[in-house]
Design a protein around this nucleic acid. Sequence first.
RNA 1: GCCGCCAUCGUCUAGUGGCCUAGGACAUCGGGCUUUCAUCCCGAAAAUCACGGGUUCGACUCCCGUUGGCGGUACCA
Length: 419
Amino acid sequence: MSVKTRFAPSPTGLMHIGGVRTALYAYLVAKKAQGTFSLRIEDTDQARLVEGTEEDIIDTLKWLGLQFDGEIIYQSKRMDIYKEHAQKLIGAEKAYEKDGAIYFKTKKEGKSKIVDLVGNREIEFDNSAQDDFVILKSDGYPTYHLAHVVDDHLLETNPVIRGAEWISSLPKHIMLFEAFSWEIPQYAHLPIILGTDKSKLSKRHGAKAALDYRQDGFLAEAILNYMALLGWTPPSGKEVLSLDEMIEEFDLADVHLANPVFDITKLEWMNGEYIRKSQNSKLKSQIWEFLERRHSEELIEKIVPLVKDRIKKLSDVVPLCDFLWETPEYDKLKVESKKEILIKILEKMEGMEKPWKADIFEKTFRELADELGIKHGDIFQLIRIAISGQTVTPPLFESIQILGEEETVQRLKQLIAMW
RNA sequence: GCCGCCAUCGUCUAGUGGCCUAGGACAUCGGGCUUUCAUCCCGAAAAUCACGGGUUCGACUCCCGUUGGCGGUACCA
């Protein structure tokens, strides 16, 4: 039988990072088996629908490159199907109506048991604890339980991949499948991602929507790679791996059973790895877009090789490089006592033949430092502060090249004139 | 409370009875390179394998219990 997986979020909130991993694993499982991965929107709770969240889910998958197959399935458009199946159960005396809702009559004997694909572990429940439950609400919409069973059977989902918070509903689902005389699909319940305080990752942690990470300067590939590693180690032991490599190596049986803690620090490291691996031309486009195309592509192109090893997120470019397109603000105290030296530096600059050459530039100021009896490093640092107002910048000479000799001299003059 | 899932360095994890005096990655600390910061390279510290019982010639690995964490306990998903 072919493998069909699906990502089935409810449009009741922005897609969060946990959803990313669920979608990713479902995608990997499908692609590995050359099966299909689809998107189903579980919009059955009218009261909790939040406008725009469906689009957010779609945009997130698109950004991540987790392309789904076929059309999007909306449960709200399948009302007749759920109703028909609920009626069927009533006809078979396996369900009954009460207070305008339809309840499923649970059997109270025996055990419900499955072998979960995650870790291949057995999960067992005693049916005696299962109370009758609603399958069709009085507003005509199905509950998750009915919709899951009907849809995943009709759409031939296998395996069903979802969060571990569903484990306790398993007996309900198993009984429903049995009531319809349908084959029970294989299940994979993914451990829940925790925040640093070990509680379920949520808004409380300032947890963010997946797309907020794009806003923060993270790359889709890095997010995917990091999320894949939350609870899973590829057999090869490789940590940095592409989507294709993940498809190649992924197996639900290798997913760790314990709930992992989301660690932004490692995500940042991973993102830096991807930035460093990037082609300069691609990185240029990404930074350019990230900065909302406010600068010329030529400028960004010059910056890229300078910042590539120095940033972990696209957003890091701003504090590092904004002096290149904005007049710096000087903290006068830092260099006030160096006024005399700055004047000497300015004189040297004005005396240098243009265009300035790197080796001559360096030689000139090393000699000046010797002349003045100060350390080589100190004089370059002083120039750095003079042109940027910062103690940390991309390489000095390269920055000056971007700035231009005129602007560099101008900034020095202005600084000297400040006091 | 009840039901279920889980338990190896701060974090992500390797480990499926002897190869473990427990390995890797991130983070941390130290060093090298270096005109800043990074990158890169080298090194260190960091887990009595939650605890207590078994089983076994031998347990991180198997079983039981305890503790702890998480999840569920809705006409929400």
